[in-house]
Simulated scan of single mutants.
Amino acid sequence: MLGMSQSQLADAAKVSRPTVVDFERGVRLPHPNNLEAIRAVLEAAGIEFIPENGGGPGVRLAKKTTC
């Protein structure tokens, strides 16, 4: 969605690449502080997390606002 590699995400979030790889594969859930760091990087890059609303949680690119 962003064109960000696992290595780029790991570096930006200051977590190990295996943490990102395992999370993407569904092997394990990162520690809460690592998960928050990953989420913060994705949100800063324009990802918006959508809460459960009957159709399941999801993500989308945030709308760009104009001034």
Rank of each mutant, 00 (worst) to 15 (best):
residue 1 M to N: 06
residue 1 M to F: 09
residue 4 M to G: 11
residue 7 S to D: 14
residue 7 S to L: 14
residue 8 Q to P: 09
residue 9 L to A: 05
residue 9 L to N: 04
residue 9 L to R: 06
residue 10 A to N: 05
residue 10 A to E: 04
residue 10 A to L: 06
residue 10 A to Q: 06
residue 11 D to E: 11
residue 11 D to L: 12
residue 11 D to K: 14
residue 11 D to T: 12
residue 12 A to H: 03
residue 13 A to R: 02
residue 14 K to Q: 06
residue 14 K to W: 01
residue 14 K to S: 05
residue 15 V to I: 08
residue 16 S to T: 12
residue 17 R to N: 10
residue 17 R to M: 12
residue 18 P to L: 03
residue 19 T to D: 01
residue 19 T to H: 01
residue 20 V to K: 07
residue 20 V to E: 02
residue 23 F to Q: 07
residue 24 E to S: 06
residue 25 R to T: 05
residue 26 G to R: 15
residue 28 R to D: 08
residue 30 P to E: 07
residue 31 H to N: 08
residue 36 E to R: 15
residue 36 E to A: 15
residue 38 I to W: 01
residue 39 R to D: 00
residue 40 A to Q: 08
residue 41 V to W: 00
residue 43 E to I: 12
residue 43 E to G: 05
residue 43 E to V: 14
residue 44 A to D: 09
residue 44 A to Y: 02
residue 44 A to V: 03
residue 45 A to H: 15
residue 47 I to M: 11
residue 47 I to S: 07
residue 48 E to Q: 14
residue 48 E to K: 14
residue 49 F to C: 02
residue 50 I to W: 00
residue 50 I to K: 03
residue 50 I to P: 00
residue 50 I to H: 00
residue 52 E to M: 05
residue 53 N to L: 08
residue 53 N to H: 11
residue 55 G to M: 09
residue 55 G to V: 07
residue 56 G to W: 13
residue 56 G to L: 12
residue 57 P to I: 10
residue 58 G to R: 09
residue 58 G to M: 04
residue 59 V to G: 00
residue 59 V to M: 07
residue 59 V to I: 13
residue 59 V to C: 04
residue 59 V to R: 06
residue 60 R to F: 02
residue 60 R to C: 05
residue 61 L to I: 15
residue 61 L to V: 13
residue 61 L to K: 14
residue 63 K to L: 08
residue 64 K to L: 14
residue 64 K to M: 10
residue 64 K to N: 09
residue 65 T to N: 10
residue 65 T to H: 11
residue 65 T to P: 03
residue 65 T to Y: 09
residue 65 T to F: 10
residue 67 C to P: 01
residue 67 C to F: 01
residue 67 C to A: 03
residue 67 C to D: 02
